[in-house]
Amino acid sequence: NKASVVANQLIPINTALTLIMMKAEVVTPMGIPAEEIPKLVGMQVNRAVPLGTTLMPDKVKNYE
């Protein structure tokens, strides 16, 4: 099972992601793969992401 990116804290809307905000966890359904964490640093979320929520591609601005 592959790990996904999960919010390590509440991430407010329009916040630029940092390493400390994210952790890798095996979750269902799968979100953004954990190996993409370095790519996500500096990207902004387009909505608030509660603690423990899986980061889905549609929650990150300009994620492809």
Rank of each mutant, 00 (worst) to 15 (best):
L55R: 00
T18E: 11
V45G: 02
L55G: 01
G31P: 02
Y63P: 06
V27F: 02
P12Q: 08
R47Q: 15
A24D: 07
V5S: 00
I20N: 13
I13D: 08
K39C: 15
K2Q: 14
P29L: 07
P57G: 06
Q9N: 04
A24G: 10
E64S: 14
P57I: 00
I11Y: 03
T15F: 07
K39L: 12
T54A: 07
A48S: 12
N8H: 06
V27T: 08
M22P: 02
K59T: 15
L40P: 03
A3G: 10
G42S: 01
G31Q: 04
A3T: 06
K39N: 13
M56D: 07
S4M: 03
M22Q: 03
L40D: 02
P38F: 10
D58K: 03
L40W: 01
I37R: 02
V60I: 14
K23N: 08
V49R: 00
K23T: 10
K2V: 14
V26P: 05
N46D: 07
T54Q: 00
N14G: 10
I37F: 03
K61Q: 10
N1Y: 13
P29W: 07
N14Q: 00
A24I: 08
V5I: 14
N14F: 11
N1I: 14
A7S: 08
E36I: 07
V49I: 15
K39G: 09
D58C: 12
M30Q: 12
V5D: 01
L10P: 10
L40Y: 01
N14W: 14
G31N: 02
E64A: 12
V60N: 01
T15Q: 08
L55S: 03
N1E: 14
N62R: 07
V45Q: 01
N8M: 09
V26M: 12
N1M: 15
N46W: 11
G42E: 03
V6T: 05
P50W: 06
I37A: 04
I32T: 05
I20P: 14
P50Q: 11
E36D: 12
Q44Y: 15
M21V: 07
P57L: 00
M21T: 07
E35Q: 11
S4C: 08
L19M: 11
I13P: 11
A48E: 15
P57A: 10
L40C: 03
Q44H: 11
V45N: 02
K2H: 14
V26I: 13
E35L: 11
A48R: 11
Q44D: 04
P33F: 06
E64K: 13
K59Y: 15
P33N: 08
A48M: 13
N8G: 10
K59A: 15
M43T: 03
V60G: 00
A16I: 14
K61V: 14
A24F: 07
G31E: 03
P50G: 08
V41G: 00
E36M: 13
V5P: 01
I37E: 02
G52T: 00
P33L: 10
V60W: 00
K59D: 15
P29R: 04
A48I: 11
I13F: 06
P50R: 07
L19W: 11
L51K: 15
E25M: 14
L40A: 01
M22H: 02
S4F: 03
S4Y: 00
G42W: 03
G52F: 04
N1G: 14
Y63D: 04
R47S: 15
E25G: 10
M56I: 05
V27N: 01
